[in-house]
Each structure stands twice: as C-alpha cells, then as structure tokens.
Amino acid sequence: MASLLPGLLLVLAIWGAVLVARHMLQSSVRELLGASFVGQRVVLDGKEVISDDLQILYRWPAMAMRDGLGGFTMLSAQWLCRARDGSYLLAMATGSSKLGDGSVHWSWRQLTGEQARASLRSKRKTYQAVFGQPSAN
C-alpha cells in the first residue's frame, strides 16, 4: 500500500495542474471575449446596433484550443442578445491568441423570435428566464 502512495500523489498533482490550467484558459477566453465585445458596431437592416446597448441573454460555452504557450490557437463563441427594440441577434466570435495578444472578430446574425426561442429550448431554466414561460420541449 505504501508503494502506491507516490504514484497516487503524482497522479493527483498532474490532475490538479490540468484543472488549474483549464481554469486559467477559460478565464482568459472569457476576459478576451468580454473586452472585445464592448463597443462593437454593426449595421443590420439599415440600423446601426452597438453592442453596449444589447442585453446578453445567453452565452454558450466558448470553445478554445490551447497552443501550449499560454494562449490558444482558436476560439469560437456564440452569444444570444436582445436589442432595445426587442429584436434578437446572434453574436458569433472567432479568434486566436498568441502569448496573450488576442484577436477576436465578431459576426452578427439577426434572428426571428422563433429562432431565438428554438436556440434556447434545450436550456429550460434560461428559456423560462428569458421568455417568461417554460419551453415547449
């Protein structure tokens, strides 16, 4: 039993390091996305929309691939937003980062109310919080 202890401690140390690295990557991705979203301007249907005026309804978990150098080689994220006039927008981020120097490009798509509802149907609590009724899932 005592001979297993060093191996067990090594496994626990490696697992802890992986968890810490994953948390740091997720934090840096969240920070980069949040900072890059501020001040975005887009013209949809002839109207200028400014990201600061949007209500972010839901953020799907961002996906990022690590580069092993403290950054990531690719990231992808989608946020469901609502404008002041009640219209829905899907904000889609793509980007990369090398040693903390991140670059994010936002693309936008206007959604109908039904498309916005459909995008959240599998997220029952979020659906109810956003639309005030249970999802018809």
Rank of each mutant, 00 (worst) to 15 (best):
L10T: 09
A83E: 09
R41V: 08
Q133M: 10
T94W: 10
Y88M: 00
K123S: 03
S107N: 14
D85W: 05
A21Y: 12
P6Y: 06
S27L: 14
M65W: 14
Q115G: 00
G86V: 00
V18Q: 15
L54P: 01
V104Y: 03
L80A: 01
Y58W: 08
L89A: 02
D53M: 03
R117M: 02
A13I: 11
V130I: 05
G113C: 05
R121H: 01
A93M: 03
A116N: 00
A129C: 06
D53H: 09
R22E: 14
L19M: 14
V104I: 05
R109W: 03
K47C: 08
Q55K: 14
L33Q: 05
R124T: 13
L12C: 11
R59Y: 08
Q55D: 13
P61E: 08
N137G: 12
T94E: 12
G34R: 05
L75N: 01
M63E: 14
A116I: 00
L99E: 15
G71D: 00
S3T: 13
S103L: 12
S122E: 11
M65H: 10
G100Q: 06
E114V: 02
V18H: 12
M63V: 13
S36P: 06
G16P: 04
A91G: 04
S27E: 14
Q110W: 03
L120R: 00
G132I: 06
A17T: 10
S28L: 08
L8G: 05
R22P: 04
A83P: 04
L120I: 02
Q78T: 11
L10D: 04
R41Q: 11
L69D: 13
R109G: 03
L32T: 13
E48M: 09
R66S: 10
A118W: 04
Q26E: 15
G39L: 09
V11H: 06
K123W: 03
R22I: 04
G39R: 10
Y58I: 02
L32N: 11
K123V: 03
Q128N: 11
A136P: 06
S27D: 14
W108K: 07
L44F: 04
S36D: 07
Q110M: 07
W15N: 11
A2W: 10
Q128V: 06
G70C: 07
R59F: 06
L44T: 07
L89G: 00
H105M: 13
A17I: 07
R117L: 00
A2S: 13
Q55N: 13
V43N: 09
A64Q: 01
L90N: 01
L32I: 15
H23T: 12
M63K: 15
E48V: 08
A13Y: 10
N137Y: 11
Y127W: 07
P6D: 04
S87Y: 01
W106L: 09
V43P: 05
E48K: 08
R82G: 00
Y127F: 14
S135R: 02
P6E: 06
L111V: 01
A93K: 02
L99M: 15
S122K: 11
